[in-house]
Write a protein that binds this DNA or RNA. Structure first.
Lengths: 352, 352
DNA sequence: CTGAAAGCGCTTACAG
DNA sequence: CTGAAAGCGCTTACAG
């Protein structure tokens, strides 16, 4: 071992008695090296604990070995303000996706750089890691983004894939869950178990999935030949538990008496449960609830919430494979893949 | 603008009529450049949309501009298996910390690389991003790690700070919450509101904080001159809701009748709530509950859980400042900072 | 305050 | 299959 802080490729070449080029070839697993030479070089690498400098490699190979995870935000916190019971800056769902991405990337040599980015205030801006070319590709996780965002991103030529959001545009890869399909599964389960007066606590109508969810609900009802009252498609002002609480209270206090509820997500389900608990109405005895898009909340609710799992980690892992393929083969056809959700039966549904 | 894909410092130098060195100096905000020259160069940079190649910069400056976030794990998933109601691979708490880290780093030029790492199986291994020198420093988020892990990390010379875990070793920075203090706050609140039969649902005795929590509890009880029965310091086999459910059920069915419970975390609190709900015992009417270490679960429980907030995002943000300082000034004295937790009063405590 | 020059550690045609 | 050489885009003493 030499005196320098860290061994370089030069050191391994010298010690193995080969040229730097040859050393480089074995490091990069080129088939052009004779078995014997390769073994020798590998032994030296092992001995001197050589590990390639990723920056040098990136500089000369014009690739970074890093992939970016962009967490889309509706605002960017400029200070650290903690407020209890507040949504985190990067929401739980994004975290689940990124867990899947990490898993999908775990066998590879890619490093993962993350960045929070808000495209709302500066519609034409792009994330720093793409401007600075710190990555070979990026995952765009969640919403929202400006209308220009995706087109601008495409212009950079950087490969990317959308995670958790479907997008059928030309040449855009996206892996997501179809909220309509998920809602249909939930409503079917309620119908299957004898419920007939079903309330759909939808997401905000400003979200693209609002209509999809309603459609999914209608498909299920139709299949069972049961009419659905449009007034029973309700929603809160936002998607959090508080808003759901109020929306559902208004609905209930207006005299509506559903026997089954499908909530837009775990939080809204919790909001409904909070109202029912307070009103002394037992779940699932008096009314059943199913949450779309279960989160860790659902399993911990009392009673534990039956929910539609949209497989966020699977989506992340699938997106990882998708992006890697895209980088290898820039001309492959775009993928827009909705991973089918499935129902997890816990304790919030009672057969009628 | 020239023909090349991306402008280099060469381009800005030529176009501004200065040397590359000078251009470099203004890019790095050196004070050695005349105002007039600086303005000129900055104008050119703006015009041609020059952005420095981070790899080249890293290579020659021997710094990377990246900080690493290491999520410590007790195992590393090798495949994508989703199981509903299962702990995520990177837990919610780690995510909260990393949100804080991102916030703390948001004003800086640092990129953030993340890696999951398990030090249990390979006690002497170090994370890839430290071996490959992809970062200028790392945050070690959470537990567990082998006894050699921290010493080995120190040997690399790479600056690091521990997040969420206290460590008083020589020359180690750590930012965390003191579970003993938090538990004391919770127990005091119960005492203050008239509770006298208090059950401590502690974490596993294998965790270092078990004793600290018990001590915190004892401090509070002592202050109120109330004896604490050691048999009322209970714990599940693990820290999840399921284990808490069983541990608490055993305790309850043995005939113990606490009027107040302090749970080790949001999940265990949820486990207790699940048992009580099932047993038809109302919270907080019959029994009050406070959770240490609130998570987003708490606010969504029914009833919403009064909890001790340990300020995970603050901890992350504070750690960010700490690491940056350490990098700037390697010889500064080590910090071991316990951020004081505080109580968030919601609906799970009733005055007796 | 500015320029010429060397060098960071690697990869990649190009010859052989 | 292997070696000599150029170059990736920047920073940093060193002179002036």
């Amino acid at each position: 071992m030499n005196k320098k802080q860290t061994p370089t490729i030069e050191d391994v070449a010298r010690r193995a008695g080969v040229s730097r080029s040859t050393a480089s070839l074995v490091i990069n697993k080129s088939p052009l090296v004779r078995e014997k030479t390769r073994l020798l070089v590998e032994k030296v690498i092992e001995e001197i604990h050589y590990v390639p400098n990723s920056n040098a490699r990136a500089l000369s190979a014009r690739t970074t070995g890093n992939l970016g995870v962009i967490f889309m935000q509706d605002y960017l916190p400029d200070s650290t303000r903690i407020s209890y019971n507040n949504d985190q800056h990067v929401g739980l769902a994004s975290f689940n996706f990124s867990n899947g991405i990490m898993t999908g990337l775990s066998g590879t040599d890619y490093g993962i750089i993350m960045e929070r980015f808000c495209s709302v205030k500066a519609p034409d801006a792009l994330p720093r890691i793409v401007n600075e070319k710190r990555v070979d590709g990026v995952f765009i996780v969640g919403l929202p983004y400006s209308t220009q965002f995706i087109p601008n991103l495409k212009k950079t030529g950087l490969p990317f894939t959308l995670v958790g959001v479907g997008n059928h545009q030309e040449g855009v890869d996206s892996i997501y869950a179809d909220a309509g399909d998920g809602t249909e599964i939930a409503v079917r389960e309620l119908l299957e178990t004898g419920h007939r007066r079903i309330c759909l606590l939808n997401c905000s109508p400003s979200l693209p999935s609002h209509q999809g969810r309603l459609n999914g609900c209608l498909r299920a009802m139709e299949a069972y030949g049961i009419p659905f009252d449009p007034a029973w498609n309700i929603h809160g002002s936002t998607n959090n538990g508080q808003a759901a609480f109020h929306a559902f209270r208004a609905f209930w206090e207006a005299g509506n008496r559903p026997d089954g509820i499908v909530a837009a997500n775990g939080q809204s389900a919790a909001g409904v449960m909070a109202y029912l608990y307070q009103a002394g109405i037992r779940v699932p005895d008096a009314v059943s609830i199913i949450a779309y898009e279960d989160s860790s909340l659902c399993g911990y609710a009392a009673p534990a919430l039956t929910a539609v799992n949209i497989r966020k980690e699977d989506i992340g892992a699938r997106a990882a494979r998708c992006l890697i393929d895209r980088i290898k083969n820039p001309d492959k056809p775009a993928e827009c893949i909705a991973l089918p959700p499935y129902l997890v039966r816990l304790d919030s549904v009672q057969t009628r």
